[in-house]
Simulated scan of single mutants.
Amino acid sequence: MSEPRRATLPEEEAGQRLDAALARAFPEYSRSQLVQWLKAGDLRVDGAQPRPRTPVRGGEAVELIPPETPSLEDAPEAIELDILYEDADVLVIDKPAGLVVHPAAGHRQGTLVNALLHHAPEVGVLPRAGVVHRLDKDTTGLMVVARNAQAQTALVRQLQERSVHREYRALVHGRVIAGGTVDAPVGRHPVDRKRMAVNPAGKLATTHYRVAERFRGHTLLNVRLETGRTHQIRVHMAHLRHPLVGDPVYGGRPRPVRGMDESAREAVNGFRRQALHAARLEFRHPATGEPQAFEAPLPADFASLLEVLRADAAHAEAQA
């Protein structure tokens, strides 16, 4: 059993909600986790189990006995990781295409979690092995992973506060005229439950985008997420009728571009994953509070596709 943690709620907390006061008393844990333990009886206030919304009087004695976190059953695997930065609190990695983040049915092995358990075994006692945000299997780029409970709680709170800055490069079909913002809720598709969709019953989702480069029939966008819903960029771009190149779920059929060189057409049609890369990541270090910023270059296949499109655009301009 874990060692009991004890605290006394200060007098200045009087009138505040209990769950908020508990989160300040035990900052290494999330509020939702503390509420769960309160309801389960693992956290008691003056020996009782008050409701999370109960107003604090000040001076209450709190005892917390965190349940032991079971280790993940997934096996560590010596999978090479492209680590841009690591210390005792966090890992920042550049995820390649084809790497599944979490083990699931059909993907129990060869995942990022398996790799993390080998490289940093201490994450085995953390929820989701320290992963605080995810990328789809075929999306490349930057991810931050927590190495201890305090770091995980701090990073999750930053995500909830929308203070984590995530910028992507996305190649889409069609020529986008100008940048803009998509404010459209994202939820499960009403018919195909394996897909997401713009759905009025979904969760708030906000995506900002601006034009980085235009080609003959495609556009490279810089995309910034304000929220982080499943498949958010892919769904929002498809909603704008500018789906991502190579997207097997939301991209639809390849669009013919009049006059495009055959080599460029083959390159676009042969790109078999969504052209999406998490290029920049900013957050506050969970231990020091210092701003952290990281960038990851485009993977070779994405960069090569852009070079082919640039050559095709230059050829079209020369003929004009």
Rank of each mutant, 00 (worst) to 15 (best):
L43P: 00
L43E: 00
L43D: 00
L43H: 02
R44L: 05
R44G: 00
V45P: 00
V45G: 00
V45I: 02
V45S: 05
D46N: 14
D46I: 03
D46K: 06
D46T: 06
D46P: 09
D46F: 11
G47K: 00
G47H: 00
G47N: 07
G47Q: 05
A48F: 07
A48K: 13
A48H: 14
A48N: 08
A48Y: 07
Q49M: 12
Q49C: 12
P50M: 02
P50R: 04
R51W: 01
R51D: 01
R51M: 01
R51K: 03
P52T: 02
P52S: 01
P52W: 04
R53T: 11
R53H: 10
R53I: 05
R53V: 07
R53S: 05
T54Y: 07
T54K: 01
T54M: 00
P55G: 02
P55D: 01
P55V: 06
P55I: 10
P55Q: 04
V56L: 04
V56A: 02
R57A: 13
R57N: 01
R57K: 13
R57L: 08
R57C: 08
G58Q: 13
G59T: 10
G59F: 09
E60W: 05
E60A: 04
A61K: 10
A61F: 00
V62T: 00
E63G: 03
E63A: 03
E63K: 02
E63C: 07
E63D: 09
E63F: 04
L64H: 01
L64I: 05
I65W: 00
I65K: 01
I65L: 10
I65H: 08
P66L: 02
P66Q: 02
P66R: 06
P66E: 02
P67H: 10
P67D: 13
P67N: 05
P67Y: 11
P67V: 12
E68M: 14
E68N: 14
E68G: 13
T69I: 12
T69C: 07
T69P: 14
P70T: 12
P70L: 08
P70F: 14
P70D: 14
P70V: 15
P70G: 08
P70W: 15
S71V: 15
S71A: 15
S71F: 15
L72V: 13
L72R: 06
E73Q: 12
E73S: 13
E73N: 11
E73R: 10
D74S: 14
D74F: 12
A75I: 12
A75D: 15
A75G: 11
A75Y: 07
A75Q: 14
A75K: 11
A75W: 12
P76A: 15
P76W: 11
P76H: 11
P76D: 03
E77V: 13
E77N: 09
E77T: 14
E77F: 13
A78G: 09
A78S: 13
A78N: 12
I79Y: 09
I79W: 14
E80I: 10
E80R: 12
E80V: 11
E80Y: 11
L81W: 12
D82I: 12
I83S: 09
L84P: 03
L84D: 04
L84Q: 04
Y85F: 11
Y85C: 06
E86R: 13
E86V: 07
E86W: 11
E86D: 14
A88G: 04
A88K: 06
D89T: 09
V90C: 08
V90A: 05
V90K: 02
L91F: 12
L91N: 04
V92F: 03
V92D: 02
